[in-house]
Amino acid sequence: MERHFIEVHDIGKQYGSGETVVQAVSFMDFFIDDGEFLSVMGQSGSGKSTLLSIIGGLNRPTKGTVYVDTLDIYGLSSEQKADFRSEYLGIIFQSFQLVPYLTVLENVKLPMAITGIRSGDQKARALKILERVGLGDKVNRLPDQLSGGEQERVAIARAIVNDPPILLADEPTGNLDSETAEDIMGLLKSLNEEGKTVIMVTHNSDMCHYSGRTIFMKDGRMDGSRPSGWAHLQQGFIPPSAQHTVTPSARRQPKFSKPPI
């Protein structure tokens, strides 16, 4: 059987019990290749964030399992799972989740402290990453002294500082204006072009054209999977059940210029 970098095997997730059972995710079965940029798209409550947390080993499914690099992540011990997250995953949240009383530099150094990188190396590496995301001149600021886009860049820097092969992004542009969102997507795209596997959850179809493939979700189930390059949208391909989530702006001509990074 051919193996893939990430294999999602028939997972299901129920919340609650008895009559109050909510089936958040069911019958999800797909794979993601190394270096792929995958969007998971659907309306609020469609189960996309639950799916992302299951792929990241953060939320045990009630059925099925996930293999990452042949590791059955729900068969790992809690210590192994912690190692798995620090080695393989960088997670970007919609609300940034920066520590408000730590500077930009200290926020980015945090994951390295957990993985045991020497403090001398931590600073050099954090500065290099912050330079990479365009915040080299704001390393000593506190998060609330930054704009939303800049805070998102700090969150991305923190996610990639341990050089994980997988980036999980949960609505990374949800709190940003459209121009800043395009910048952030450009940054994610360039990280993907450098070899990182990016899995992004979004309800904004404008952002899907950065990814190579889009999985559509509805009511916790997969509702189609298609290559999601701009050409496909331009040719009019929109999965029937997802048409209501695709705004007219999705048909705009995209900016193909590489964002300034």
């Binding site: 970098f5 690099d69 042949t70 192994q80 393989y88 045991g116 092969p165």
Partner: peptide
Amino acid sequence: MTYDAEKYRSKREKVLGVRRRGV
């Protein structure tokens, strides 16, 4: 892209505890 089992071998071994870190 074809899956390359060797690409992240060191990470995998670290997770599985094959490769011991530090003392």
